[in-house]
């Protein structure tokens, strides 16, 4: 597929700690097309943030390391890229925004300085042009009185404004891919909606592909076209946002959707998946979700389920669907 922008192929990112080797990302494969909005969903600790940081090669190292797999960006494996090559890609072709707008900006430099820096790093412009471009970017992300804000410091702005500044900074060099790691989690609901609107507009206008990391299925429903569900470092389900939300296949996804509060149904108590996310560790056998799964049978504890293709770009990692497809199909192969 020529329109694939980013393709992860069997990515393994492990952390080497005193307690041993921890496979935080354990064989993840998915892809993002040009101009597409893809969501990665999962509970805390499922490896979604580590996946996004792996793409940028921003994992704290040591202890983290990409031990295996490919990260193909525009057909080139950037998992093997040199530091210099990565610096050219970061902020220029792939930009990233983070969960904590309050602490993600340097408190000691003005907004203009920090946005301008992103421009100066990748484009041949002088400081004055960078400043003008910073003001234009602030206007683009809907910041009122952009001419004044450009000289203000992060502590003078609210959380929502700071996240807009982060987005302006990420958009500085018109990246082809924007990775947003829980961009709305730290913000209150009305601001969340505004930020999502902004991201959707940027996606439409600039055709920037977005990889959105979130634990919030509401956010997924709002802007994602396709969704990758992760559990304990592995992809457990993939499909369009509509398919995932309306017809979840994997028991974990089903659990996630059942635990959403519903506006029309008066249930006594909100559903929650029993148990907790297992600690990642090497050499564990069987489906990671089995201990919490209500459909689990003996095989689930003895064998690792494979990611099954159950439709067009529709995958699930569960033995329940094995008969439906007849044959196992590797995700990576079906993509190529």
């Amino acid at each position: 597929m020529s329109d694939v922008l980013l393709e992860l192929n069997n990515l393994h990112t492990h952390f080497f700690t005193d307690d041993g080797e921890i496979p935080a990302v354990d064989g993840v494969s998915f892809h993002v097309r040009k101009g597409e909005v893809v969501g990665i969903v999962g509970e805390s600790g499922c490896g979604k943030s580590v996946t996004s940081l792996s793409i940028m090669q921003l994992i704290p190292s040591p202890p983290g390391k990409i031990v295996d797999g490919e990260i193909n960006f525009k057909g080139e494996n950037i998992a093997k890229a040199s530091k210099k090559q990565m610096r050219k890609i970061r902020g220029n072709e792939i930009a990233m925004i983070f969960q904590e707008p309050m602490t993600s900006l340097n408190p000691l430099y003005s907004i203009g300085n920090q946005i301008g820096e992103a421009i100066l790093l990748h484009e041949k412009v002088n400081k004055k042009e960078a400043r003008q471009k910073s003001i234009n970017l602030l206007k683009l992300v809907g910041i009122p009185r952009a001419e004044a804000v450009v000289d203000e410091y992060p502590h003078q702005l609210s959380g929502g404004m700071r996240q807009r500044v982060m987005i302006a900074m990420a958009m500085a060099c018109d990246p082809e891919l924007l990775i947003a790691d829980e961009p709305t989690t730290a913000l209150d609901v009305t601001i969340q909606a505004q930020i999502l609107d902004l991201m959707r507009n940027l996606n439409k206008e600039k055709e920037t592909a977005i990889l959105l990391i979130t634990h919030d299925l509401g956010v997924v429903a709002e802007i994602c076209e396709r969704v990758v569900v992760m559990y304990a470092g592995k992809v457990v389900e993939e499909g369009t946002a509509k398919e995932i939300l309306k017809d979840p296949k994997h028991p974990y996804t089903q659990g996630l959707i059942r635990s959403l509060p519903k506006i029309h149904e008066k249930e006594q108590k909100l559903y929650s998946i029993p148990g907790t996310v297992p600690k990642p560790g090497k050499g564990k056998i069987g489906c990671r979700f089995a201990p919490r799964c209500e459909y689990a049978f003996d095989r689930c504890f003895q064998e690792d389920p494979k990611l099954l293709s159950i439709g067009n770009e529709r995958y699930t990692r569960c033995f329940l669907y094995e008969e439906n497809v007849g044959s196992e199909n590797d995700h990576a192969k079906s993509n190529s």
């Binding site: 704290p60 970061r90 602490t103 900006l105 340097n106 790093l121």
Partner: peptide, 17 residues
């Protein structure tokens, strides 16, 4: 270790900067 240092790296800044 702070978040804003990660942001600077995400911009593509080198170690010296």
């Amino acid at each position: 270790k702070s978040d804003y240092i990660r942001t600077v790296r995400a911009k593509g800044a080198g170690q010296f900067l």
